Simulated assay, not measured.
Amino acid sequence: MARITAQADKTWMSKAAFYAMLAPALILLMSTTYPFLSGIYTSLTNQKLYIPASKFVGLNNYINLFETPLFWNGLANTLIYAGAALAIQLPLGLAFAILLDVPGRLQSFFRSAVVLPLLVPPVVAGLIWKTMMHPQSGVLNWLLAQIGIEPLSWLTSPSTAMMSIILIDTWLFTPLATIILLAGLQSVSGEVVEAARIDGANAWQVIRYVKLPLLAPYLLLVALFRVSDSLKSLEIIYSTTKGGPLDATRTLHVMAYEEAYRWSSLGRAMTIVFVLWLVCYTISGALLAFWQKQEAKNRGL
């Protein structure tokens, strides 16, 4: 009888421990799932920001959105911005990481200095660069004038505005790619590198054939971080151009922000946000699928 009681107590304690550990996971799941589902429902209504009452309109918000030329312009701008940011920052981050991995007297100084842009909030960075890019009084045009180049309308011309905010984004977030890739380089075993050098590999061959293949997970991590961040970028764009000039930098996130806080249309704003989430989810899923395919290929599966 005592044995049965002890087993029952042990079973009860095991279940209690299980539910005690499960509870935080369930709370976290509900804290993310409920807002997500609530946002999807909001996108199916005509809810306004300052009016509690709303009417269910079904897919009308999505139909109206897809019929709007501004949406397709915003989608194109979003993809261009994210694609260009990744295409520039990944190689730059890798190049800086390789340089910072080389031992030297100033190595610790440059490793500390490279993180400084990350300490600047994106809104502040946008305002600083907006001042530097001013057509008349900006320091960038002054520097161009010193070498005989005509001044540029950095943020005020449709032809250069997108390039300008990508430049700001590159200055601000390339250090993130550098730090992640530098950590990847530092994780490469010294024994592997030494074995390659004994086999006659020079410094470039060590990087090309030893370190870079081992950096693949870190490159994927940088790609996922930067794609997801760039797709929903708002602070830099809104603090510099507010989506202009002539909608040249109006991305989906800017459109969603203006629908919610300028036009007070939460329903339409959540519609744009959900479409943006689908774009981000699709691109991230494609990157992960490509990675898994490459891993299976490398294992010979």
Rank of each mutant, 00 (worst) to 15 (best):
T249Y: 06
S230R: 11
V227L: 13
D247V: 00
K232S: 14
G243A: 07
H253R: 06
S233G: 08
H253C: 05
L234C: 09
R226Q: 14
K242I: 10
L231W: 11
L224A: 15
G243Y: 07
H253K: 06
L231P: 04
L224C: 13
G243I: 00
I236R: 04
T241A: 05
I237R: 09
K232C: 13
T251R: 10
M255I: 10
I237F: 04
M255C: 05
L234F: 14
P245I: 01
L234V: 06
S239W: 05
I237D: 07
T241L: 06
V227Q: 09
V254A: 03
M255F: 09
M255Y: 05
S230V: 03
A248C: 04
D247Y: 06
T240E: 03
D247F: 03
L252C: 04
P245D: 12
L252K: 12
S230W: 11
V227H: 08
S230C: 08
V254I: 15
V227P: 02
S239F: 02
S228F: 08
F225T: 14
L246H: 07
K232D: 13
S233V: 11
V254D: 01
Y238R: 01
L234S: 03
L234Y: 12
F225W: 11
T251V: 15
T241H: 02
I236S: 01
R226I: 00
T241F: 06
S228R: 09
I236D: 01
F225V: 15
M255R: 06
D247I: 00
A223I: 13
G244K: 07
K232A: 13
E235W: 01
T249L: 03
G243Q: 02
K242H: 00
I237G: 05
R226W: 10
V254C: 04
R250Y: 13
M255L: 15
M255A: 08
E235T: 03
T251D: 00
L246M: 12
T241W: 05
I237P: 03
K242V: 12
R250G: 00
Y238D: 13
P245K: 07
S228A: 15
R226F: 00
I237A: 01
D247P: 02
L234N: 02
K242M: 08
R250K: 15
L231Y: 09
